[in-house]
Nucleic acid binder design. Structure first.
Lengths: 350, 350
DNA sequence: CAGTCGAGCTAAACCGCTCTAGTGCCCGGG
DNA sequence: CCCGGGCACTAGAGCGGTTTAGCTCGACTG
């Protein structure tokens, strides 16, 4: 005999299929004695529910989807994603919910997967990442009526709850810190310009430039890759009036930039201060260790998972959640610019 | 009306459910004209199959499982995993097969998930990683009769096909290269001693030590973390007769080790050569860039995915697959040991 | 002591799809 | 003219659960 079904258990226990279903699901409708007998038989026969059969009846699939539209090769490079994934896992596995992961080429394919998985009842909800400036995915998910949590914000993401950190405040804390050290020329190697958080960071830098008396505050968009990070750094450092500090939107770029500086004989932090917007082992283990914004991406993932589980349980009840603004961890890659006197207190950001 | 079912299509097209099923699945049993009419109606109604209903009939679930038994937090740290994941994705998405990912605490939980997902028909097969020296999972998966591919080998993994690279040859190529440079004291910061590949690497080093005339060749097991990598490096470098070269089993540890060396004022590669067993951006972007074994982990993942898909399609037909032995990429972190004359050709490993 | 009620259980419909066992019809051969 | 065979299609039985309607029986009520 193959896998036992509730019919087998029913026969064995001398009851009906219905009674077995009630017993196994802790639902009223059977006496305590019968319930125990059924459970015993089920355990003896090593019975397990057939998820498809359950799903057919309209039940949960106990899985959530994460669809990422990026070149597959680049995912492995980003510690951020790996960290997030770990956190999501941790949050989900508490309730034994699995994560369906799919990497696709572009947003069109991503949307197609949303449609398919939803109508196939393959997942109970979605996690949406890489929020764009104008994001069509939001509306589609709303129309599909499937629970979803957006990673990023704040701002327009329709009725979908989001989990976000304040990128603006974070950028301001970096810039204030650098300005207090005496830096007046700051470059910002940003991420993909289509992403919302990239825009927020760029705007924050621009907005604060005047009030802090910065002579220069440029943002250069990149694709987050180490290659572009290195190339852009090279260009910046080759300029006659080069920046005295560079803020990188990812740790991979920051480390690549550090490499370029070393190679070009630009001392860090003597002649160039480096700040990474992302913290990870990467930032800690290089030398000099990088001053970085410490956001706990793992915890963020956990948070998102919890939020999504709640949204699935009780749609409509869950609202936006702001995670703590990441704090600047000062390490060895930042200092006063060359030829600067004491100005402010460099150890106290903000 | 909710989502359309084949019954709706049948009614609309004026045929039976069976005819619709035949038409939609490209099966004989309907005329060309009817088939086209049905497909047209299906498209108009925006019909999509209900995966659960299909699965209930015994069909594929179009998903494969990857269960990892490691602390969730550490997954994010390993570029290897992220890379592998990307590769798996790439291999699977060619056939629109999704990946069910779950991170669990220990092997017992992992096995429990294998049982559950199998009996729930949640996945069509599994990918097994972190092959242990004595691995109980193999036997369990065989008994469950579910397709699975083992990452690692060669050697005892029962009837399950495996994808593997020759760790022994790889380690030998590193040691030969270092010996040719003139190194006689080599330390090896290994991974978890319970893993099979760790054992193979340790043995390869030990076996070659005598014939290469090494004075010292120790392997120190670690947990793969940057912390243990750093600590062990510190201990090695503090010894009176310290090694002139260290081989690290992972790039994270190698970079951490590089940091310790810099911090202790030990010049790399002047006084210490560093080789990483894993290559990734990490090894490329630090300075000096690390000499590392370049295995294409992404391609490995793709390969494993293909292997598994074949195993699912035609169980029993697929056998072990050896991937190319990783080649040493010489960068800046290796050189002649201090006070060594010319010996062999350092640029030509093996 | 008849009527009511609820607990405990059964029978069967149902979820959406697949697949097998027919059924009707047409065509060609003997 | 009849029969066999093949094609196009239908009816309906499963797949393994959940859920609802209904049945029985004993206890309690008035």
């Amino acid at each position: 005999m193959g896998r036992p079904t509730i019919a087998d258990i029913a026969r064995q226990a001398g009851v009906s299929k219905g009674a077995v279903s009630f017993a196994l699901n802790g639902r009223p409708g059977v006496s305590q004695a019968t319930r125990e007998r059924i459970l015993l038989v089920a355990r003896e026969m090593n019975w397990r529910p057939h998820s498809a059969a359950r799903a057919l009846g309209g039940a949960r699939s106990e899985a959530v989807g994460l669809v990422i539209a990026r070149p597959a090769r680049t995912i492995g490079v980003e510690p951020f994603f790996a960290q997030l994934l770990s956190g999501l896992q941790a949050g989900l596995s508490a309730r034994a919910v699995a994560l369906q992961l799919l990497v696709v080429e572009d947003t069109a394919a991503e949307i197609e997967v949303y449609r398919r998985w939803t109508s196939e009842h393959r997942v109970d909800g979605f996690i949406v990442v890489d929020l764009k400036v104008r994001d069509e995915r939001i509306e589609i998910l709303e129309r599909l009526g499937v629970p979803a949590v957006v990673l990023g914000g704040p701002g327009r993401h329709g009725s979908l709850p989001s989990v976000w950190a304040d990128d603006r405040e974070a950028m301001l804390s970096i810039v204030h810190y650098l300005a207090a050290l005496g830096h007046r020329r700051i470059a910002h190697l940003a991420g993909l310009p289509g992403f919302r958080h990239t825009q927020r960071r760029i705007r924050a830098l621009r907005d604060s430039a005047r009030s802090l008396g910065l002579v220069e505050a440029v943002s250069i968009p990149t694709d987050f890759s180490d290659a572009e990070g290195a190339a852009a750094t090279r260009r910046q450092l080759a300029r006659p009036e080069r920046p005295t500090a560079i803020v990188y939107d990812s740790d991979v770029m920051a480390v690549a930039g550090l490499g370029v500086a070393t190679e070009m004989g630009v001392a860090v932090p003597g002649e160039l201060s480096i700040v990474s917007f992302d913290d990870s082992v990467l930032a800690r283990i290089v030398h000099p260790a990088l001053t970085a914004l410490s956001r706990d991406t793992f915890a963020l993932g956990e948070q998102v998972a919890r939020q999504l589980l709640t949204a699935i349980d009780a749609p409509g009840t869950v609202r936006d959640l702001q995670t703590p603004t990441p704090l600047l961890t000062v390490r060895e890659s930042t200092g006063r610019p060359a030829g600067e006197g004491a100005l402010g207190n460099p150890d106290k950001p903000l």
